[in-house]
Amino acid sequence: MNAISGAYDWLTTSANWQGEKGVWHRLAEHLYFSGVCLAVACLIALPIAMLLGHIGKGGALAVNISNVGRAVPTLAVLILLTLTPLGEHGDLPTLIALVLFAVPPLLTNAYIGMREVDRSVVEAARGMGMSGGQVFARVELPLAYPMVMTGVRSAAVQVVATATLAAMAGEGGLGRIITAGFNLQNTPQVVAGAFLVALLALAVEGVLVLAGWVFDPMRGRSRVSE
């Protein structure tokens, strides 16, 4: 396959990795956008989801926000924001779009995780005299942790993908290698860029699976009560 060996050549040409349009710089942009936005989205969504889950209210909102997020095209939001006055502030439209699309999976998963904690366990904790805060920190949070981490993983994958699309709205990141390849009608570059993006997405997911396991508060203990 011509394009595939071409892509290999593109990736092994060191000139393609250097400079402002090189892979390293684009990767740094991509990781910067993704990291900052994922952190901001977590800071916004997780406390809200956990509070709602703890008091058991707002379930319809937490669940439906994901369905709404699914129906809204990311590309449209990126381009709409770029055309608003926000577009004059450089990266701001992209950062906002990234946060907007990272919030739904975080909110929904963390909420469901909190609600799926066995009610009898929570009742037992209360019966032992735990306060609301103690129940939250020592019972609900450790038990909801896997779902919370699933949400973080989904959000991270979402953010990496959205950051790629930002290139179509004229922003930086690894997606820029792909869009530049399309503009130059350079198929090997398109394939090489796509390969790098796919690799990054899978690496991010892999790292988060590992991190989820390492930081699991219940590691080595069973979540099942039987």
Binding site: L165, M168, A194, V197, A201
Partner: peptide, 17 residues
């Protein structure tokens, strides 16, 4: 599941050849 985590722009680009 792995296919699902590949960003759409990359997915379409990988199919280009």
């Amino acid at each position: 599941t792995v296919l699902y985590s590949i960003p759409s722009l990359a997915m379409f680009s990988l199919l280009l050849p």
